[in-house]
Simulated scan of single mutants.
Amino acid sequence: MPTRRTFLAAVPAAAATLVLTSCGAAGATSAPPATGTPAATSPPPAAPGAQQSPIALDTATAQPAPDLPELVLDYPGDVEVRVRYVSRDPEDPTGCTTRGREETVEAEVPPGTAAVLLGDVRYELVQFHFHTASEHTLDGRRFPVEQHFVHRGPAGETLVIGLFLTDDGPGGTLQDTVLGELPDECGEEETVGGLDLAGALPADLSTLRYPGSLTTRPNTEGVSWLVLRTPAAVAASTVQGFRELFPEGDSRDLQPLGDRVVRLREQ
């Protein structure tokens, strides 16, 4: 089951157009943890530019974009992943001393197992990971957890699908299963099978799309973000268990929107 490695790559010009208009790109080799509630000792982001993530999303001001390509899932109903604890803190690369925003739990998906399509461009799912509290906000709301599905495009572009998680579900979801098998910090990775990737996302695939960056070091820009408007529900015990791993949170502070435009693709 998923390994805790995160990647994100710069988006080439062609993909960047997709990002600005459809937010379609996919990753290469970096990772995303962040801080919605950053620890006081968290280091500042490295060399931030004008297109950093996460941001505050607002459905009322997002520009309707019905002409953008729809998000098509090619996720299997049964997959095995490798899950591990990952640190992107250069001062604590093993993540064995402190738990902060540069650390997370990551599930590595076997190559060729799952993908999404935007138009005729296919983005392979590389891994997914979690942040508490949510890195993005939606209409002023911060959710208990945010899940990031990191994809890589044909030219190494990075596309990330963000999914908000609430803590009022009955349990039994992919998220409940993975977060219920969390490896110890600095411990051995875990293999988790029988995961329904296809059922991990809501039926409503409406997305808020914008060009941004990785939310962990090196905070590389050129990342296409597609944040799902509709959250998924997991059990309260699942959220509590993850929060106990990161009592100070592992999410990055909100970044300025600047002159970027957030587009809403209803679906």
Rank of each mutant, 00 (worst) to 15 (best):
L57R: 07
F7D: 01
G27F: 14
E244G: 07
G249N: 05
I55P: 01
V86F: 11
L20N: 11
T3H: 13
V192H: 00
R142I: 00
G171T: 02
V261C: 04
V223I: 03
P170I: 04
Y210E: 08
L159H: 07
Y123R: 02
V121Q: 00
R141E: 15
H129W: 10
P183F: 10
D253V: 00
A26E: 05
V178N: 12
H131P: 02
D196V: 02
A50L: 14
E248T: 15
G169T: 14
G153A: 01
L68S: 14
A40K: 15
R229P: 06
V227N: 00
P2S: 10
D196L: 10
C96N: 11
R101G: 05
L165M: 09
A236I: 11
R209D: 08
T177W: 08
T137W: 04
Q63S: 03
P38I: 05
T94Q: 11
F164A: 01
E91V: 14
L257E: 04
V11F: 08
L205Y: 02
G27V: 14
V19P: 06
L228I: 05
V192L: 01
S213H: 03
T191G: 13
P144H: 02
A25R: 00
P183I: 01
D58E: 04
A65T: 07
S224T: 07
L125N: 15
T238A: 12
P218G: 12
Q63N: 11
D78S: 15
R263I: 02
G24Y: 08
R152L: 02
P144K: 02
G119Q: 07
D204G: 03
D67A: 15
I55L: 14
S42P: 13
S251H: 01
D176V: 15
T230Q: 13
L254P: 06
P76Q: 09
T220F: 00
S134K: 03
D67V: 09
G194K: 05
H151K: 03
T216D: 13
V72N: 13
Q147W: 04
G153N: 01
I161Y: 07
P54R: 03
T173N: 11
G212I: 04
P183S: 06
A236N: 12
H148G: 02
E244H: 13
V72E: 14
G180C: 15
R5H: 13
T41S: 08
L71Q: 07
L118F: 11
V261K: 02
D139W: 06
S237A: 15
P44I: 12
H129N: 09
V239Y: 04
E91S: 12
R5T: 07
L174F: 09
S53Y: 01
R217G: 14
V79E: 14
P183G: 04
A56S: 09
T97H: 05
T35M: 01
A107S: 08
S251Q: 00
A56H: 09
C186A: 04
T113C: 09
E91W: 08
T177K: 15
M1T: 10
L117G: 09
E221K: 07
V81N: 04
P48G: 07
S87H: 06
P76F: 10
E108V: 02
G241T: 04
Q267W: 10
R243H: 15
A40F: 15
